[in-house]
Nucleic acid binder design. Structure first.
Lengths: 237, 237
DNA sequence: ATGATGCGATGATAAAAGTCATAGTCAGCA
DNA sequence: TGCTGACTATGACTTTTATCATCGCATCAT
């Protein structure tokens, strides 16, 4: 098994992009975290943590992209969250006192800092502002999940795919050209984000391409008509 | 518009069944909550709070049953949570600083205590144990939502209906006879819990009945073969 | 009683989505 | 150079699920 590369850059420069949660911590607590954390670089495709294993801390993304995915009962991947610079992950299982409910896998070479459980919990205990920020994060995630749940139950695949493309755009943004999604997903991964079969995703993407809404170039996806996509997604909220 | 009935029973007797979250509060904080809360009885069908409105506090269920439901973009109800004695609700929007993402509607005559925002937030701020319990609750809910999301994306309606029946059983339990679900849902509500069309739910329930798994008597549902139901739900986790 | 009304049930049909099979494309590599 | 394997694409077909229409059966207010 390939191991991540441990690196020794000082993370002081990281503070500028600290996650909302850690950003609320008092200076002293932040210093404590800085002292104790361990940073690593994971190559594309490497797993940061595995579904079903026990959490020993939380992970803060310094730079890179990560998918959180959960295996369905029949072994099919469902991607439940996407992480980007400044996001933290692993807190759900930690706070539930649970095992990980999903695996975290690097979508590209990703620099991640590990904060040991004891440090994180003690800071959380002594820093009400940070605790509130943590609750806000959890609440926001819960809200997102419940919205997605409704869409999954009620919307056709076509609308969900459009919504997913917009979601990817919101999360990772565009490249310098202002139209190409700044991430590479396989068609299967997009399908596992939408919650549909790979072939359906391919077919619908072809349709979007035919209608001039997107342009496809291998794994590069250009969004030519965001307004059309938004209309196709048929979102009210 | 019919208003809920305000009642003046002392809620000291309620402490025995206080929610996990409030149960963790220090004695003094609990007293403070007891002082400030306002209790009401909502008749079956009455709305405790409306999706889209602003939260002014949280609600604690003294006794009764509540559904939390969210309207999809095309106006179809999606039931996202079920509440029972001792549960609290309304915290998601409060902690996110959001409007309510769902409406809370009484499934039967329900006794609910309202805790004003300021009281709840101040207790939360000064009571780390309760804050942790709150985070645990949010994390558990998030986990549940993400599991459901995967099932919604990957499992056929038949399995989801079986799972939903088991979920109702877990939540509300049986009547004294040990087989009849202790709640009355319309077929449409079950469908909105499963995330499918009402007719599909009716058809599948008929099949379950034909196979001797359940017995139907109007809105009364008896689960005759829980093991069969579990097998039908095809759950791995 | 009576006629609404809502709900449950069921059949017929249509639409949506999944599955299976196959073929093309491309990058990496011996 | 040509092979290999992974990914994309597409057609044919099946299955699942939704939709539409109808009917029976309670309940309930008048």
């Amino acid at each position: 098994m390939k191991m991540p590369v441990e690196i020794h850059t000082s993370c002081q420069t990281c503070e500028a992009r600290f996650s909302t949660v850690l950003g609320k911590a008092k200076k002293e607590h932040l210093d404590e975290i800085n002292m104790e954390k361990v940073c690593n670089i994971y190559k594309k495709g490497q797993t940061i943590f595995h579904e079903g294993s026990h959490p020993f801390g939380v992970y803060c993304v310094h730079s890179g992209k990560i998918k959180l995915s959960h295996l369905g009962d029949d072994g099919k991947e469902q991607i439940i969250r996407l992480l980007k610079d400044g996001d933290i992950t692993g807190y759900r299982a930690l706070l539930s006192g649970d095992r990980y409910g999903a695996s975290a896998i690097a979508l590209e070479d990703t620099h991640v800092c590990f904060i040991p459980k004891e440090v994180f919990m003690s800071v959380l205990k002594n820093d009400a502002a940070m605790a509130f920020e943590m609750m806000k994060l959890l609440s926001d995630e819960l809200h997102r999940a419940e919205l997605q749940l409704t869409h999954l139950a009620q919307k056709p695949v076509r609308e969900r795919l459009a919504e997913t493309l917009l979601f990817i755009k919101e999360t990772y943004g565009f490249e310098e050209d202002g139209v190409t999604l700044n991430v590479r997903f396989s068609r299967e991964e997009i399908a596992n984000l939408v919650g549909t079969a790979t072939e359906s995703t391919i077919r619908l993407l072809s349709e979007f391409k035919r209608d001039g809404i997107v342009e496809l170039d291998g794994k590069k996806i250009k969004i030519l008509k965001p307004a059309e996509l938004l209309k196709t997604a048929n979102l009210q909220d």
